[in-house]
Design a protein around this nucleic acid. Structure first.
Lengths: 94, 94
DNA sequence: ATTCTATTTAGAAATATTTCTAAATACTGA
DNA sequence: TCAGTATTTAGAAATATTTCTAAATAGAAT
């Protein structure tokens, strides 16, 4: 479990913004890059980190690589935080 | 809102472990330090980061400074993650 | 007032992260 | 096969983070 890796990945503002973009649906690396004032190489670097943290996964289609959110790891983070708060991981009261 | 600061603070394993120690109750800087193979200065550095991120707060008593968890910021993180998952921040189904 | 203990601050060294440019890879379509 | 487009990799520079030692501060107790 690369739990630490996930938090590390979430600690960068660019990477969080990429995740927010992907919330609406899959995007190619180029599409993602067009939202930032950075080179494609830098975007690729951030995508690699997100991939290693299991926060996104890719699927190849035609000449493109599409990225999409993987929400399962987010569940684990939620669980860690909930446990830290001293709460029950189950149903929240209201 | 220093939202980015909070994620940054959570990205370090030592700081997450400090938070877990504080889950059981307030501890002095010295008490916290005794759980790590690091100098008090380094622990102090990490405590400062956690304090700036509003993840802990301190209260002075006698010769000691006691630190404790502040869970309100954790709620905000949960909200961000829940929203990212595309979910309703309200009641979770089961 | 002085001394002792707890903690923080300052400054420096080691390491890690982010970003770029240039080159490489991979796949598409003519 | 060759040319074009999308993306990644390699290597280097700039910046940020983590850790240490040594010194400073703050408060407690003699």
């Amino acid at each position: 479990m690369a739990f630490a890796e996930t938090f590390k990945a979430l600690s960068d503002p660019v990477r969080r913004q990429i995740l927010e973009l992907l919330k609406k649906g899959p995007l190619s690396a180029g599409d993602i890059g067009s939202h930032f004032d950075m080179t494609g190489a830098t975007i690729s670097y951030h995508l690699k980190i997100l991939k290693q943290a299991d926060l996104i996964f890719e699927s190849r289609e035609k000449n493109y690589i599409y990225y999409q959110l993987n929400t399962t790891v987010l569940e684990e983070i939620m669980l860690w935080i909930t446990t830290l708060k001293g709460g029950d991981p189950g149903v929240e009261s209201k």
